[in-house]
Amino acid sequence: MLAFELERPRSLQEAISILEKFGNRAMPKAGGTDLLMWMKDRLVTPEVVVDLSLIPDLAGVNFSKDGLRIGAMATCTEVLESAAVEDHFPALRDACLSHSDWLIRNRATVVGNVCSAVPSGDVMPALYCYDATIRIVGPRGERSIPINKFILGPRKKDMIAGEIVTHVFLPLPEGKSSGCYLKLGRRNALDLAQVGVACVAIDGKNGREYRLAYGAVAPTPVRALEAEKALQGIKAPDDALLEKVSALAKEAVKPIADVRAGVEYRLAMVGELTKRAIDTCVERLKEE
């Protein structure tokens, strides 16, 4: 790993000005659980690492009647331990719980997972289902962008030098909802997803609505909009419908073969986990 300077700004303004000054030669660091690995492998070679952990504005998880704000420094553990997340965003809670192990989760942030923008990022499918928006500040001020516009491709995101994501915002689902995230890995902990499926079901104004999003099976997380449509309004999907929905979900994804899994298996698991995720959501909504 190359030697680097560590900056530890205490305010957003200070962080932005350091990042702007060094441009591509600087990178922000949250938990560092991706950044440091990448530096070690020389996938990135920042000369200046800007640690965001001392900036008060970036801390914490806050819930209001509008929704949930997850600060850039909020760790997976903080998020999964939040009562509001458990009550209103269960798919995100599942996702955080599926992430790595306790040790890493105490460091790794939800925002860092988004900013890494790797296809297998575990928290992203849930954020896609909850229509999360990414809030950014930079030299040119603040902006807000839907997550699916923010993520552009593997390790590519819509951000320029000097910008920092301050938080993600998840609007409160309009109606009673349930959700889950099912992750398939090679083993039960500390693995990147071979396939990740998030499902959210909401009993809203127009009846039951479903959202389905997938990780690790396309260059970015994807929503299966056709599959969602096929389920629209249906509270107890039968086996035939679940089959149809899982076929539609497979059409929405485009997995590759790598050392973690082949295409055939990934596609089959998209189908299988879709059915299980919908079942789980339907059951969870019944329970309440």
Partner: peptide, 24 residues
């Protein structure tokens, strides 16, 4: 331990060389 078709190691570290954890 797996290699690509040119003999390049695909599983050099624990990201892709998996052993059982206590969960398994």
């Amino acid at each position: 331990i797996y290699y690509d078709k040119n003999g390049k190691l695909l599983t050099p570290d624990f990201t892709d060389y998996k052993i059982a954890t206590t969960m398994d």
